[in-house]
Design a protein around this nucleic acid. Structure first.
Lengths: 337, 337
DNA sequence: GTGAAAGCGCTAACAC
DNA sequence: GTGTTAGCGCTTTCAC
């Protein structure tokens, strides 16, 4: 039960070479005669030697570990992002330390400190909002930090996103085209920069283009989860809206089920478009028409970006925007489109 | 952008004490005069010193990092397990390295090697099946490995689970009591020990108790995902079964939607009980009646178990069994129960 | 192509 | 209560 017994030194002795040579073989350094390389590899196999990444990390000051801060792995949107990150990380031989933050500022700072203490080579940060405390933390970090699915108001951090504003505007426009004038906008906390300064604006853009007055009473703030959507459904019904744009799939699932349970027929009496096109969008009945976005790719691209930053490569673009689209399903009337 | 500049030595010099003393205050060792402790803490704050966990890990041979191998974070059942693990890990000041294995044997071994190389203090392993290769890997590991939501046929590894056999038997019995005789059993690969030697047996136990002959044609093997359940739905319909037990929620969501889309009325013409009671179970319409199991707790308890093992404490029980239950929802007829 | 030796930043005896 | 001193297992100059 005791850790790591065979070291590079044992291999060196057994193979009758120096530790430096073993190190070279292990790290694939070209400057080793094929013959000695074979000999060393044989001993490595024989002894079952496995390099100690901790010692290596201390000596080289690179841990090949990156930190991933995620609000909650249990949320499908973020889990999908995380999967994209991990796959690309694995491809580049990085491991990821995953830390749930629950969007709590205290926890976010806490986990950032932990990550930095562990000497991660870089960090991918996910969340819904960036405040000054966490920005300070980014500055204190001596390693690159990339945002995935999160916009930095000041554009200081590299990031990967879709164009939330036009995505929302497009979706709203579809509903407007279908003749709706009272369209509910269901989103997260409007204090969150992305909601206030992007998604809401997209919604308003579309309204303005169709000369429909913006009505605050049609804006609903939830907490991104099913339960919150379900509860909002009653309020939405009472608001006399005839359609809704929901920023997040789990919340949208709550809205569609809440509405249905309240006797509202979707899509005949009420149309809904959701924002993520994650797995849950096809599980509900009717299925959710949705803005499509490459969630997995956002994570993957963010991680790829991080590898470049860790290699001190220049970034062509600091804030990458991936394309979004739209898919028509049962929660909107088919003859609209 | 270069890593960690202020070291324990800098703090020692500035505070006019030895590194040992700094180390003591950082680690909360009692043998330090309150006065010097304050002085050292002041310098730490002033210099912004953050202990280097890598150096610490090398010197102490403990990394306070544990490895978590997960088939796919994107699967809600495992994500929930992972969340339980992470929360308890954080409580005990451990960080987790998360690695997706895709249930591929090659990848599982690969990630185990990576984890071991990183000198994790322990591992929580999730998956659906254990084979000899991975068992060898567990043996090679010089650290404890705990299984979460996974049974070891040989009971060599500590584990946390529910009693799948009786859970399945209970659920099947409900359907039997409601008068069904042709009950489909939808599960994962029957080569998987848990499916073959526990879940299937539970199903058969119930059948036997009601003198209903076991019919292989009513057993359906899927791949634990929505798509697979959806595809199986047609076959299930053709099998003339009038009810189904589905081992996994995502698959059950596929089955219920597939059946509904094929014109079958659930629950009037067909009743379904699923196995996890994860979020998905309430998103479908009708909602899925389900075996309930404390998924989050399974992860949490597994991690707690690991902390004990890492402290070389004795385990009261090596294979923990958590209680399961049943919740009645819309996919079964209410008057049955 | 290979070796010697000096760290990397810390912990853990052990001494005082 | 505090300091000294070896390492922990590797990478990385710098020689040769």
């Amino acid at each position: 039960m005791d850790k790591q017994t065979v070291t590079i030194y044992d291999v060196a002795r057994e193979a009758k070479v120096s530790m430096a040579t073993v190190s070279r073989v292990v790290n694939g350094n070209a400057n080793v005669k094929a013959e000695t390389k074979e000999k060393v590899n044989a001993v490595i196999a024989k002894l079952g030697y496995r390099p100690n990444a901790v010692a290596r990390g201390l000596a080289s000051r690179r841990t090949t570990t990156i930190g991933v801060v995620i609000p909650d792995v249990t949320n499908h949107y973020f889990a999908e992002l995380a999967r994209g990150i991990d796959d690309v990380a694995a491809m580049y031989h990085y491991q990821i330390i995953l830390a749930n933050s629950d969007e709590s500022n205290t926890k976010e700072i806490q986990v950032m400190e932990n990550l930095l203490g562990k000497q991660v080579d870089g960090i991918v940060f996910m969340g819904n909002i960036l405040n000054d405390d966490i920005r300070d933390e980014f500055k204190k970090a001596d390693v690159p930090v990339v945002l995935a699915g999160l916009l930095d108001e000041y554009e200081e951090q590299p990031s990967v996103n879709i164009e939330y504003r036009s995505a929302m505007s497009d979706a709203t426009t579809r509903l407007l085209q279908a003749g709706h004038t009272k369209i509910a906008f269901v989103t997260g906390d409007l204090d969150h920069y992305m909601n206030k300064a992007h998604k809401l604006l997209g919604y308003q853009d579309a309204l303005a283009a169709y000369d429909v007055a913006y009505d605050e009473k049609l804006v609903f703030q939830g907490t991104y989860d099913y339960q919150s959507g379900y509860q909002l459904a009653q309020e939405i019904k009472d608001s006399e809206a005839t359609a809704a744009i929901v920023a997040n799939d789990e919340m949208a699932a709550g809205v569609i089920n809440g509405l249905t349970d309240a006797g509202v027929n979707v899509p005949d009496d009420f149309e809904i478009i959701t924002g993520n096109d994650s797995k849950v969008a096809v599980i509900t009945r009717p299925q959710l028409s949705s803005i499509t976005q490459p969630i997995y790719d956002i994570g993957a691209v963010a991680m790829r970006m991080l590898t470049k930053l860790m290699n001190h490569e220049e970034l062509a673009v600091n804030n990458i925007v991936l394309p979004h689209g739209y898919v028509d399903r049962g929660s909107t009337k088919h003859d609209n489109m």
